[in-house]
Design a protein around this nucleic acid. Sequence first.
DNA 1: ATGATAACCTTAATTATTTAGGTAGTCAAT
DNA 2: ATTGACTACCTAAATAATTAAGGTTATCAT
Lengths: 159, 159
Amino acid sequence: MSHLLDETDIAILNHLQEHGRAQRNTIAEIVNLSVPSVSERMKKLEERGLIEGYKAILNSKKFHFDITAFIFVQVDGSENYANFVDKASEEVEVLECHSITGDGSHFLKVRTKNTGSFEALLSKIQSWEGVSKTRSNLVLSSFKETRQIPVEHATELIK
Amino acid sequence: MSHLLDETDIAILNHLQEHGRAQRNTIAEIVNLSVPSVSERMKKLEERGLIEGYKAILNSKKFHFDITAFIFVQVDGSENYANFVDKASEEVEVLECHSITGDGSHFLKVRTKNTGSFEALLSKIQSWEGVSKTRSNLVLSSFKETRQIPVEHATELIK
DNA sequence: ATGATAACCTTAATTATTTAGGTAGTCAAT
DNA sequence: ATTGACTACCTAAATAATTAAGGTTATCAT
């Protein structure tokens, strides 16, 4: 069981963050290793759980999902939290559901087809047990949605 | 140039949203097509831009990025917006930067290693030209971060 | 020194992907 | 009703990618 990442691992992780289907020979050229060595490193990064998985990124505009919004929700009574989270997780239009500090107990990122479907979703959420207040912000434009994690900053893991 | 998605396309897209490196023969079994047919469909979905790309998903906890937070920023004077967005985009700890409606002009999703680095980032942001107010919420736990887009709801695209 | 381990390499075997060529169905124009 | 142009699919063959096998070297604790 190896513990630390060297700069080759960092390069591999960073490349895969942007090119999730990159082939091993492409990566091998970038990091100056043989293909089997790259395979082995990738396998270990996956087995260690550093790489959780791979996703295709779809273009939400092309699918006519025009509204992206953030919704703060105040759920009263922590006995209602679990129920709220379950309901939120069932909604396909809810992309993320977070429990947060500060005003509001929960925070949702949602994506709907238009303002109509957004309002419908919002009303539905407001009808859930314990929901007392909501505050929404619609996204006008997004400027950055690239790398998730600056791997090279994970100093604890780096050789 | 084909226009509409059938249920086979939807199944392919949904599978790739969760298994970005899935092999064509695996998908072929799922959708009951030959491997070359799956290849051709994937290529078209990519060429049409419905699939923007593929990403490896890393486990932020394993990298010791313990803080995820949302920051609302009030940038005064729209002449300062472009500068703000540029600066935000340069920060590796800033994962997303959105221009929004409602109170606050911009909204950031950030991820830092600990509360210390979070405070440092926040002070830095507050020092930028035009930034007058910020409001932060730390994420305690996240319950859903799976599919981006419910493809089957894109009625305009579906046959 | 010795043995265990890890990381790398090359070559060969296996598996995945693409290419080539062909069939059937749809549909608009003759 | 036929023709021609598409499109989507198939199978079989060729190519390319990945994994497996076996060996070398370096490190390090015994």
